[in-house]
């Protein structure tokens, strides 16, 4: 086994063993505890979004990962940066939601009892049919390499300001609802949006044309500008 293999093995081992309290959680007790969540969240087959996103098959899913739910910028950004829902992450989030993801829209002060959290996590895991614990724990996330490459570039603010004038012909400072405002987005969200047009994940005649013309330097420059202006 090479050094890298040893490391991967260690990560898997660590992930499986890291939290004894979590592995001892009782899904039945978790189901009872879920009534704390059920005012806003559905879980199980056929669950749909309500005030909060549905939690069926949550485990292993990117944070902020449902395309039909409108998350806070914080969760969207975390997902863009490749964060997935693992048992450890869920446990930490449930302990102090606002502390873990500052800006989350989830209005819930958290659960201080580690046993209740372990039960809840065990229940949510049990409702995740295709959860691959080991793969999720070792995943570096599914951030497309195109996005990671651009986020690694130090964007040229002045160039971004110049390029931004191409955007402001259609994107007003305040969103009127017909064309969204793009001011103050998190860098990963901004880059992710443009890349999704470039790679055909999203389609729009104008945006596809505009994005296709932007190279990595241009997108990084635009992100540097738009993420800082008010």
């Amino acid at each position: 086994m090479g050094k890298q293999g040893l490391f991967a093995f260690a990560v898997i081992f660590w992930a499986m063993q890291s939290s004894p309290a979590l592995s001892e959680g009782d899904p039945m007790a978790g189901q009872a505890a879920f009534r704390l969540c059920a005012a806003c969240h559905m879980i199980g087959d056929g669950a749909i979004n309500r005030a909060g996103p549905h939690l069926d098959d949550l485990m292993g899913r990117p944070v902020g990962g449902l395309s039909d739910y409108r998350y806070s910028d914080t969760l969207t950004e975390a997902g863009n940066e490749g964060e997935l829902w693992t048992e450890d992450r869920l446990n930490s989030f449930l302990e102090d939601p606002q502390g873990y993801y500052r800006g989350t829209r989830m209005v819930f002060r958290g659960i201080s009892d580690p046993n209740t959290r372990a039960d809840l996590v065990a229940y949510i895991v049990a409702e995740a049919d295709n959860y691959d614990r080991a793969a999720t724990a070792t995943s570096t996330g599914d951030m497309p390499p195109e996005i990671a490459a651009i986020l690694a570039i130090q964007g040229d603010y002045a160039y971004g300001e110049y390029l931004s004038s191409e955007c402001t012909a259609c994107h007003a400072t305040q969103s009127g609802g017909d064309i969204p405002s793009i001011v103050g987005l998190a860098p990963s969200t901004f880059v992710h949006s443009l890349i999704s047009y470039k790679i055909g994940q999203r389609e729009h005649q104008v945006m596809t044309m505009i994005a296709n013309r932007l190279g990595d330097e241009e997108i990084a420059a635009l992100a540097a500008y738009f993420t800082t202006v008010e």
């Binding site: 004038s165 402001t168 012909a169 259609c170 994107h171 007003a172 400072t173 305040q174 009127g176 609802g177 017909d178 064309i179 104008v206």
Partner: peptide, 19 residues
């Protein structure tokens, strides 16, 4: 059509500095 409404708001802001 709705997009054109958004564009009108944006380009006039871009021209006159105000919505």
């Amino acid at each position: 059509y709705r997009e054109s409404l958004g564009w009108y708001d944006a380009i006039t802001e871009d021209m006159f500095g105000t919505a």
